[in-house]
Design a protein around this nucleic acid. Sequence first.
DNA 1: CGGCGACCATACGGTGTTGTATGGATGCAT
DNA 2: ATGCATCCATACAACACCGTATGGTCGCCG
Lengths: 198, 198
Amino acid sequence: MAGSLTRVPFLKPPQTKLTEEDWLAEALQTLAAEGVSAVRVERLARSLGVTKGSFYWHFKSHGELLARLRDYWASHHTVVVDAYETQGPAEAETMLLALLRRIILEDANRYDAAVRAWGLFDSLTAEAVLRVDETRLAFVKELFLRMGFDREEAEFRSRMSYYYVIGETSAGIDRTSEDRLAFLDRRHRRLVDRTPIR
Amino acid sequence: MAGSLTRVPFLKPPQTKLTEEDWLAEALQTLAAEGVSAVRVERLARSLGVTKGSFYWHFKSHGELLARLRDYWASHHTVVVDAYETQGPAEAETMLLALLRRIILEDANRYDAAVRAWGLFDSLTAEAVLRVDETRLAFVKELFLRMGFDREEAEFRSRMSYYYVIGETSAGIDRTSEDRLAFLDRRHRRLVDRTPIR
DNA sequence: CGGCGACCATACGGTGTTGTATGGATGCAT
DNA sequence: ATGCATCCATACAACACCGTATGGTCGCCG
């Protein structure tokens, strides 16, 4: 009775051999879809069309999978930009807007949210998220510096820019992406404006 | 061997009878400490010094516990303020600052973060969080309205105020509370200032 | 073609979890 | 005091999960 009821063997092509990254990619999808507590061995095996025997050949244990998954996310899914060397103040504005737009539109923040929830109760993951946030924040701050703001102003405006997006993403949003993009434009116009605020 | 090794019966006084709220309170603590996946039946029973027999008298199932826990949080741990009727524009400023200070300092945001992580993969919880956010945001917007800002300005500044705090809380924060409070003061001074920004 | 290594299936033990069934203890009302 | 409702313990079934042990299959290389 309870044999292979949810098996759909012809969905995935008969991929001859599985690699370690296949497991990590599947684990990341499960993480983003149902959280870290759904990232289990036999579950991933079923999704990949194999059994546990395959898993324990590629990984030492379930804990090692999570550790690798943490690094996998941090190294492959947190790219901001690292080739912004030759940019002037004008490009900095448009680059900031493009970056924030991308965060809102892309599904990459789906990964971010899941990892952030994971990091709430896992200190190592929390550290990884912290490092990613610091890197991104430093990048945004650098953009504001190139716009001509001094260090204190750049610190203030970068934090307002970045943490607002984090908050809006973390909050349950029924707003459509168009709504968020429209409000992003309003924020951007204000946060980029050089007239002294106070 | 595996009998009652972690039982510490004299920690909790011999509370004669357990009530349903005792279970919910313990569940909320576990939720805040280790996430919703740690809210399990026998685990709570051990923490409360009883066995499952007690649980299944108070609750129909594990799912019902989570449903009750969701309502328990929404109704008992999301009070903002509802007695701000007779307030002028001056009190609105200090009330906003006090509210945001309280969010940063209190452990209430610990509950919020855990429920928010829960809501990422549970639609009913997501709706509950959404309603709470809408209520709070409407309250903050009302404060800005009482400060004299028009509707569009109040909408903008309330979202900036509220979602920033959500983001800063959701992000892994190594900053101390003093740091966050200091930065809160800077934000507050700016967001409350009436000089037109752009 | 023979053998070896990469990759996976199968089977099993052990634990943790939900849920049920049933009996016991305790207090309160009549 | 007797009976009943409340509250909990115990025992059990069923399942999911981790990890191991062992054998099997396939391809490649000499």
